[in-house]
Simulated scan of single mutants.
Amino acid sequence: MITITGLSASYDAVDVLHAVDITANDGELTVILGANGSGKSTLFKAMSGVLRPTAGQVEFNGEDITRSSPAGIVKKGLAHCPEGRHLFPQMSVEKNLMLGAYVRRGDKKRVKALLERSYELFPILHEKRKQAAGSLSGGQQQMVAIGRSLMSDPTMLILDEPSMGLAPLITQQVFDTIVEINKEGIGVLLAEQNANSALQIATSGYVLAEGRVVLSGTAKELQNDPRVQRAYLGV
């Protein structure tokens, strides 16, 4: 579904990504592991058009999207749920969700179905749909952020650190929902520091360090790799 070849990116002429190669297959859940500053968020921004790569290519469903606009990429079916949620705190939960459907606004029937599906995945959001998003707990705000991304009707969802700052019980609920989304046929590319939980639900994965891919394999292979165990699993 998505193939990244030789992708490099920088901020203010400082190189952050260095010739990264990654493949995420149709319908699979692929995890990107790495410490803070390893380049995970930069990778996702370059994939979704928020940051222009300095070299390399991003191909989605056989089409080169490297130079496409963020809105154009969303229209093609690739949605990015960024680190930090980036909600509009004074707007209601439902209005925040509806913002994710701007590329589908011509199909009111489909948008209504997508909104209903978001409420099915996160029933608490239906209960609080008229409340200001900023009044919700951190876990509920993360649910809004994921739901907003799903409102664009993606075939692949990029999730950047969805468990950040969440209590263990809420983290598990979020991960259970990610699995459910993936089972519906939506491919998931998940960046996480919570390596143990991420590898338990993933199909395959990559490890980034200082902007480079240093390890890759199936989730089971990474779980059993002594380097991953020492660095991320506390073994």
Rank of each mutant, 00 (worst) to 15 (best):
M91C: 09
P154K: 01
G165M: 03
G34C: 02
I158M: 14
G205K: 04
A71W: 02
A209Q: 15
T171R: 08
L114C: 01
K95F: 00
G84Q: 05
G185S: 03
A145M: 13
G187Y: 05
L150Y: 05
S10R: 12
A46T: 13
N36H: 04
R129K: 15
R110M: 01
V144M: 14
R104F: 00
L125G: 14
T23P: 03
G139L: 14
S118Q: 04
L51S: 05
P226V: 03
Q131K: 15
Q131L: 15
G39S: 01
V31I: 04
V179C: 09
A79I: 02
G234H: 05
Y11W: 12
E180H: 11
I32E: 00
V235H: 13
T5S: 15
D107E: 13
H80N: 11
P70S: 09
N96R: 05
Y206S: 10
Q193T: 10
P70W: 04
I146R: 11
L51Q: 12
L157N: 02
Q140A: 11
I146T: 11
H86Y: 10
P89G: 07
R212W: 02
G77Y: 06
G134L: 13
N61C: 10
G62H: 06
A145W: 09
M98V: 07
T66K: 12
Q223E: 09
D15I: 07
R105H: 10
